[in-house]
């Protein structure tokens, strides 16, 4: 099966889940790399980059809209249609499971703060927890689209 055929047979919502997971994973990796580099340069945990975080969220939103627009252009009918009953179940399950991921990551961040008392690290970890939760939601969606519901 060619890549084009595989793409054509992939549901629109699964394609958007792949795209969003890729964008967010790239973003999280970039942020993690930035924090590690800055912390190494300072010799301690770098303070939160509030301005950067805001700009970064805006860039992620713009990238998401651009990718969604391109995908919607390739299958406008599917993009226009509301989610069907199976897709709603998939979205609900993925959202539910990702909630546990966020909770576990947030508690891990709090545990780290409780042990080390590093407020800057708490900020970075909570921000990354949110991103991890969002990535997990899209990954769970892809898994459920490809397996049983």
């Amino acid at each position: 099966m060619s890549l084009l055929t595989a793409l054509r047979n992939t549901p629109f919502r699964e394609k958007t889940a792949w795209a969003m997971a890729a964008i967010l994973t790239g973003g999280a990796a970039f942020y993690l790399n930035l924090v590690i580099s800055a912390s190494q340069a300072l010799g301690r945990t770098s303070p939160p980059f509030i301005g950067f975080v805001i700009a970064y969220v805006v860039v992620i939103v713009i990238a998401s809209v651009a990718v969604m627009s391109v995908l919607a252009g390739t299958s406008p009918r599917e993009a226009d249609a509301p989610a069907d009953e199976r897709e709603k179940i998939i979205a609900d399950k993925a959202g539910n499971w990702s909630g546990y991921v966020i909770a576990a990551a947030a508690f891990g961040s709090l545990w780290h703060y409780g042990v080390h008392g590093d407020g800057h690290m708490l900020f970075h970890l909570v921000f990354l927890s949110l991103m991890l939760g969002q990535i997990a939601e899209y990954v769970f969606q892809i898994m459920l689209y490809r397996r049983d519901v």
């Binding site: 549901p11 599917e78 069907d84 009953e85 199976r86 897709e87 689209y145 049983d148 519901v149």
Partner: peptide, 19 residues
């Protein structure tokens, strides 16, 4: 029936029980 083709495939394969 107002669903996606992938949902019809899942129903046919017995992977998803429709409403």
């Amino acid at each position: 029936i107002g669903v996606t083709r992938q949902t019809v495939i899942a129903i046919e394969l017995g992977k998803y029980s429709p409403s």
